[in-house]
Design a protein around this nucleic acid. Structure first.
Lengths: 210, 210
DNA sequence: CGCAAAGGCAAACGAGTGTTTACTGAATTT
DNA sequence: AAATTCAGTAAACACTCGTTTGCCTTTGCG
């Protein structure tokens, strides 16, 4: 059985232009926020009629939450990669930062979109992003609780630590993006800072109740 | 001598409507991003003609950077307050979080504006915010270097730590704002989490080269 | 006093917006 | 093979937008 529906040449074509719209929107959002993105802009970029928009989305916010699922879906891959790393603390930090940098290079538009709209002007999208990031936080907290170092950490404390990691990941990804764009410090500086921050947190973690 | 110019009833009236425009813009930005804010919207809210806008600002981005200076100017007050605190580490954390919460309650629109436009769609404003936050970071780094605990910390390491504090401050302020609005966890939960994070960082700091 | 400066007004401009309506033609179903 | 579904079209709707032009009225300066 297939994930969505039966083959359906009809449905296939539809999902194809839908994806084209999402891609076009992501491109247009490089230089503006979602709350100023026009429905006609998107359809024009794809090469369809404005009215055709409504065959796929109710309005722009609706398209926005679809973008959230897509962008943070790809981030989900990264998070699970980070969690399955099982080396020592030091190497773990190194590979984490490197993976984040690689991810930003692979999906810059996704990173920008999430960073921009996390506190952006469209309520629905803000809530969708918050929900997904909370989900990430819970995953991280679960993974942390399985480690030996989590011996005497309460669930609430693990959640706090996981949230710190997630926030730091987003912040680091965004810093890499700015670096890649020439706004702000160089990529190697960003990497150094990110590693140092994680080392600091790791130290605090080791002495949490020492 | 006065800060701006001689008394000038003319200039006074001008600065007054200019301030009205900034306030109106800040209000309108509660439900949208700067990149979708219309010039006519602002003038309509103030009660003047669209053409009058150009007597004060070149365009909306220009108004945006004026808002940045205003918003982060008020934040500057908070930062120096935090830095002059000189109690023990634990009480310092408590009063810091409390001051942040108080600040958010006093200037919610400023916090939202900075959080929203820090990675927003208007380049000029992004750069203005980044510049101001870098300035804060240097101030914090300087203050940290004067402490006894900064004995064997290099300038680069101090800058890293200061940046972590600034990022954490912005993040915490934004969390308080969401809490106040009903999006996300309650204010007391936010406060607890923020305190715990700062305690963790403080621990890492104490063992940085132990 | 009298002239220059300047904040604000009124009106018009061309261009872009979201949404609706009736339609066409190809893919699907019966 | 006929009937139905539906992604996309074409055109029109009533607005809103940023910007320019000329004018009025009050303030400021010599």
């Amino acid at each position: 059985m297939s994930r969505t529906t039966a083959p359906g040449l009809r449905e296939a074509r539809k999902q194809q232009t839908r994806q084209s719209m999402l891609d076009a929107a992501l491109g247009l959002l490089e230089e503006q926020s979602l709350s100023s993105l026009g429905l006609r802009e998107v359809t024009r970029a794809v090469g369809i009629t404005p009215a055709a928009f409504y065959r796929h989305f109710r309005d722009i916010p609706d398209l926005g939450v679809a973008l959230v699922e897509q962008a943070l879906g790809s981030l989900h891959t990264l998070v699970t990669s980070l969690l399955t790393e099982q080396d020592g603390a030091e190497e773990r930090i190194d590979t984490s930062v490197e993976l984040i940098q690689r991810y930003v290079r692979a999906h810059p538009a996704h990173v920008r979109f999430v960073a921009r709209e996390r506190y952006g002007g469209v309520r629905e999208v803000r809530l969708a992003i918050a929900a997904q990031l909370n989900l990430f936080t819970r995953e991280v907290a679960d993974a942390l609780s399985a480690e030996a170092a989590a011996k005497d950490w309460s669930p609430a404390e693990l959640h706090m630590l996981a949230g710190l990691f997630v926030d730091q990941m987003v912040l680091t990804a965004c810093a890499f993006l700015n670096a890649e764009l020439g706004e702000g410090p160089s990529p190697t500086e960003v990497a150094d800072t990110a590693r140092a921050r994680m080392r600091l947190v790791q130290l605090g973690r080791e002495h949490w109740r020492g």
